[in-house]
Simulated assay, not measured.
Amino acid sequence: MDDSNWYVRIKSLPRTRDGKFSPTLFERYQRNEKALLAYMLEMYISGVSTRKVSHIVEQLCGTSVSKSLLTAELDPMVKEWRDRSLSETDYPYIVTDVLYIKVREDNRVISKNCHIAIGINEYGYREIIGFLIQDGESGLTWSNFFEHLKNRDLKDTKLVISDSHKGLVSAIRESFTGVSWQRCQVHFMRNILSYVPKKDSKTLREAIKAIFHYTDIELARNAKNELIDKFSDNKRYEKACEILDDGFEDAFQYTVVAKGHSRLKSTNVIERLNQEVRRQEKVVRIFPNTESAIRLIGAVLMDIHEEWIGSNRRYIQF
């Protein structure tokens, strides 16, 4: 039997809190409609009358419900999913990023950050393994997020993929001892090219882009050294060459740790996820409180997570 297919079938089965299988229609409905429940709650919060929302629910479900009932149904589901144990699966590769949201607090609109992590499991499938809404993006908030994951028994991580935010990189080094960090190549290349003058620089730009096509670190390193030898003496290109040289090793760790799987060289997968969450979240624009943000974002992430698991499509091939 194919281990990966076994994994997908087991992960897609509904479970109760005690871990027993419970393929009831009600629980299936709860999983599939959690995003819809979140929108209904936000309609209440945004000022839509109870009567109108109850009418929508009645048309879809055959019964009207109150805001308190919807909240009582959804909040425990989001909390249980967010805090679930990760002990049953190994996640050798983690991709992480932050999503900025606006929340109303004490009659003030403030910025909060939603830290999100995607895990690529031992069979090559992707899962959303955690999210946490906090104040600010600092080394401390990232450390809190990583501790949240580790407290849920995250284990056997080999590579963390992210951008180069100073606080984030520091937290990765401290929280994941012995784990490699893959700097997002897309962000890194943009950073390098931002220091290359646009005029008369086509040759250099093409040479820089060519380096990032390599999936063998030795070939990439040789190409990088040749480029620096050729262009670093030119003051117009000195800074770009310096940035390339300093950040090169971190940007090619996936070629060593992750067997050159090209999908692990950037944060594209989580940026697409963030775009989907943002598309859903912009209907609200400003959350009335942190709890409502957890409710809506959590419900959307749960829905996407279930879709990924049910698709039976590997993100990377081993």
Rank of each mutant, 00 (worst) to 15 (best):
Asp106Cys: 11
Ile172His: 04
Tyr195Thr: 10
Glu147Phe: 04
Asp135Phe: 13
Asp156Tyr: 10
Asp216Val: 06
Gln182Ala: 07
Ala171Trp: 01
Asn121Cys: 06
Leu219Asn: 12
Trp181Pro: 01
Ala117Cys: 12
Glu147Tyr: 03
Asp216Phe: 03
Ala117Pro: 10
Ile128Glu: 01
Ile129Lys: 00
Leu140Val: 11
Arg126Lys: 15
Glu127Ala: 07
Tyr125Asp: 10
Ala171Phe: 01
Pro197Gln: 12
Gln185His: 03
Gly178Trp: 01
Gln185Asn: 12
Leu159Ser: 07
Leu193Asn: 03
Glu105Met: 14
Ser194Gln: 14
Tyr195Pro: 08
Asp156Val: 01
Val179Thr: 07
Glu105Arg: 15
Arg126Phe: 04
His165Thr: 05
Glu174Phe: 03
Asn144Tyr: 04
Leu168Asn: 05
Leu204Ala: 06
His148Arg: 09
Glu174Ala: 14
Asn113Gly: 15
Leu219His: 04
Ala220His: 02
Phe146Tyr: 12
Val169Asp: 01
Gly119Phe: 02
Leu219Tyr: 01
Ile118Ala: 05
Gly119Pro: 00
Ile116Met: 09
Tyr214Ala: 11
Ser170Gln: 13
Ser164Cys: 13
Phe176Thr: 06
Leu193Met: 10
Ser138Tyr: 00
Thr215Asn: 11
Arg190Ile: 02
Glu127Arg: 08
Arg173Val: 07
Asp135Ser: 15
Arg104Pro: 10
Asn225Arg: 10
Thr177Asp: 13
Thr215Asp: 06
Gly167Ile: 05
Phe131Met: 15
Asn113Pro: 04
Asp200His: 14
Lys224Ile: 02
Gly178Glu: 08
Ile116Gln: 04
Asn121Thr: 06
Tyr125Gly: 05
Lys155Gln: 14
Thr215Phe: 06
Val186Glu: 12
Arg173Met: 08
Arg104Trp: 04
His187Tyr: 09
Phe188Thr: 01
Cys114Trp: 01
Asp106Arg: 14
Asn191Glu: 08
Asn191Ile: 07
Lys102Leu: 15
Asp163Arg: 12
Lys158Gln: 13
Asn107Thr: 14
Arg190Gly: 10
Asp135Tyr: 13
Ser170Phe: 03
Lys158Glu: 12
Gly139Cys: 08
Glu105Thr: 10
Asn144Gly: 06
Gly124Val: 04
Val179Leu: 02
Phe146Ala: 06
Ile192Met: 09
Arg104Gln: 14
Gly136Tyr: 02
Ser201Gln: 12
Ile110Lys: 12
Gln185Cys: 10
Lys112Asn: 09
Phe188Ile: 05
Ser194Ala: 13
Ile129Asp: 00
Tyr125Leu: 13
Glu226Val: 02
Arg205His: 07
Ile118Arg: 07
Cys184Glu: 07
Asp135Gly: 09
Lys166Trp: 03
Ser162Pro: 02
Cys114Leu: 05
Val103Gly: 11
Val186His: 09
Trp142Gly: 00
Gly139Pro: 03
Ser138Cys: 10
Asp200Trp: 10
Leu168Met: 11
Arg221Gly: 09
Trp181Tyr: 09
Phe145Cys: 02
Leu227Gly: 01
Ala171Thr: 07
Glu226Gln: 13
Ile228Asn: 06
Glu127Lys: 08
Lys166Cys: 11
Asp200Gln: 14
Tyr125Gln: 11
Asn191Phe: 00
Glu218Met: 06
Phe131Cys: 11
Ser143Asp: 09
Arg126Ser: 13
Val179Ser: 02
Phe146Asn: 05
Thr215Tyr: 09
Leu219Ala: 13
Ile129Leu: 05
Arg108Lys: 15
Gln134Tyr: 01
His115Lys: 08
Ala207Met: 09
Leu149Asn: 00
Tyr100Trp: 13
Tyr100Gln: 14
